[in-house]
């Protein structure tokens, strides 16, 4: 390898000491640095906060799994790639798992020397998924903002007799003058119209 890879912290949550140890030694000369936690239950999120791991490796049978999954679904936390130790051969359900925050599985017949490869793939897959999700969020936000601008345009066309282009220009001008986003100007306009319509009743 020509480029030096940066260090990545792996938090291993597993009560099976032998399994955890064999993966720890398999990762010895790799960029992955292992922190092993066993028999933890309640202060798990504190540990996650303290170590700021880049990857979490957890036993599929651990009661902590729901806590780890909440990292991906409660917005106050930062999602992390999660890799799961499993005794069973989990069929390929990558699409479903990755939605739930699981990026890869390590099964009982996985050889420890494959550990690095699996973690590499998990990180790549996770980053890909996050990117797609961010793009989707952005597209949705754009759509929402267009919705406000469309509504505001409709108001101007109806009430002021403007053409569509005139209405659009008017909103853009007001946004530029006030140093605001067009979406915010449009939203204010729609809110104001609703307020006035409500006041008349």
């Amino acid at each position: 390898m020509t480029k030096k890879q940066e260090q990545l912290t792996v938090l291993v949550i597993d009560d099976d000491m032998a399994r955890a140890q064999s993966f720890q030694s398999a990762l010895a000369d790799t960029p992955y640095q292992v922190i092993h936690l066993a028999h933890t239950s309640m202060s798990l999120l504190k540990e996650v906060e303290r170590h700021q791991p880049d990857i979490i490796l957890i036993d599929i049978e651990s009661p902590n799994r729901d806590t780890i999954e909440s990292l991906a679904t409660i917005s106050a936390y930062n999602p992390k790639p999660v890799v799961m130790f499993s005794d069973n051969q989990m069929p390929d359900m990558v699409n479903d798992s990755i939605k739930a925050g699981v990026s890869a599985y390590i099964t009982s017949d996985t050889r420890p020397d494959k550990a690095k490869f699996i973690l590499d793939v998990a990180v790549a897959r996770f980053n890909e998924f996050q990117k797609l999700r961010d793009e989707l969020d952005q597209a949705k936000r754009k759509l929402a903002s267009r919705k406000w601008v469309d509504q505001a345009k409709a108001i101007l066309i109806e009430q002021q007799g403007m053409s569509e282009q005139q209405a659009y220009n008017a909103i853009r001008k007001m946004a530029m003058n006030n140093g605001q986003k067009m979406e915010d100007v449009a939203k204010n306009m729609v809110d104001m119209m609703q307020l006035m319509a409500g006041g008349k009743q």
Binding site: S41, M42, S43, P63, N64, T67, I74, A76
Partner: peptide, 20 residues
């Protein structure tokens, strides 16, 4: 407030320790 997720069986230990 803060909300976190804990397995049902671990709830009482977390309450007793003051974590929640």
């Amino acid at each position: 407030i803060d909300v976190m997720v804990i397995a049902p069986v671990d709830m009482n230990a977390a309450l007793e320790s003051g974590d929640i």
